[in-house]
Nucleic acid binder design. Sequence first.
DNA 1: GACAATGTAACGAACGTTCGGTAATATGTC
DNA 2: GACATATTACCGAACGTTCGTTACATTGTC
Lengths: 190, 190
Amino acid sequence: MAQQANENTVLIEALFDIFRNHGYEGTTISLLSEGTGLQKSSLYHHFPAGKEDMLKAVVVYVSMQVHKHIITPLLDTQEKPEKRFSNMIATIKAFYSDGRKNCLLNVLNLGEAKAEIKELQNYDYNAWLNALIQLGKEVGMSLQEATEWSERFLIVVEGALVIQRLTGNKLTFEKQMEYEKNQFQQFLNQ
Amino acid sequence: MAQQANENTVLIEALFDIFRNHGYEGTTISLLSEGTGLQKSSLYHHFPAGKEDMLKAVVVYVSMQVHKHIITPLLDTQEKPEKRFSNMIATIKAFYSDGRKNCLLNVLNLGEAKAEIKELQNYDYNAWLNALIQLGKEVGMSLQEATEWSERFLIVVEGALVIQRLTGNKLTFEKQMEYEKNQFQQFLNQ
DNA sequence: GACAATGTAACGAACGTTCGGTAATATGTC
DNA sequence: GACATATTACCGAACGTTCGTTACATTGTC
């Protein structure tokens, strides 16, 4: 069951950190207990429906964060497009700790079940994608151009996280983000 | 313990398919038993060291496949660079079933343990990367240019797989691969 | 009959979950 | 303000199930 809107943020962030580190199957209630400092039974007090409910609360929380700190600022036409894009890069660099932290999208290998969670993630992805497309069109890209650029950008974000986790090279993610900023700037200057 | 080199290929491919679908934690011996048609104890006859050994055999097998069908052909200077690159694209499109199948690199969220497996994957990644760099230099890229192009390519491969799994859009992976082919062709023509 | 391959049946451990009850905090009543 | 009463937060101990694994018997092959 859904939690009250204001479920303790500290608690949910602790859960978030564990899920993104271990994936869904790899996350055990014991791990969540250690990570939050709460006993298992206390976790079930906050999330009566259990582990899946804990993940859902995390995904809902992340969704709100993404909308608040990424999507809404991207669409704020009071700020210059160039600034909005570089602000977004800064935000996601912090969000992923310069690539040292995983993306939930990447790490959750959800099977047929958990369709609700998958749908929310898909919805967020599309919202982010559309905000980028909007920005692209705003700076003069055609719809197709903007769509391809936006898809490519999000693909690179996810891919860079995978490769950085694999190689341990701490600069992979950052380098790609700098490249994207330069490309965008180059488009603006042409 | 490592298996004899010629461990039944059909068996290992069945294991591979399950691991790439469910990840390591999500893969249970029961699943492996169902997927291979062997009883659990029969699996332990083939892999006395258990689940981790089964994964290792899969990773070793995949490593051989990658070297045989991707890296070696990439370095075969008897073939034209353009052809080698498009052959590689065709190979990995088949390998990932046009993006419908996951990459083990992506799906294995291996913790501190399993260092040996992680190292092998890292080694394979570097071999692939270096083969691409070699190809890039061969067609006239500078070392830096070739390195950035190669890193970017592998990042896009992994990222496209993540995004396609998320959205279910069956064309995501294929589209990126076509884009990469065009970009490479464009470089050759300039 | 030797030996590899497979099967049956069970093992202890860890899993996610539940229960009964205690501490802490808020609410109501005078 | 004092005290009784709900309400919420938390905990220890156990639950049934499934996990990965193993002991041992049976089958197939040469």
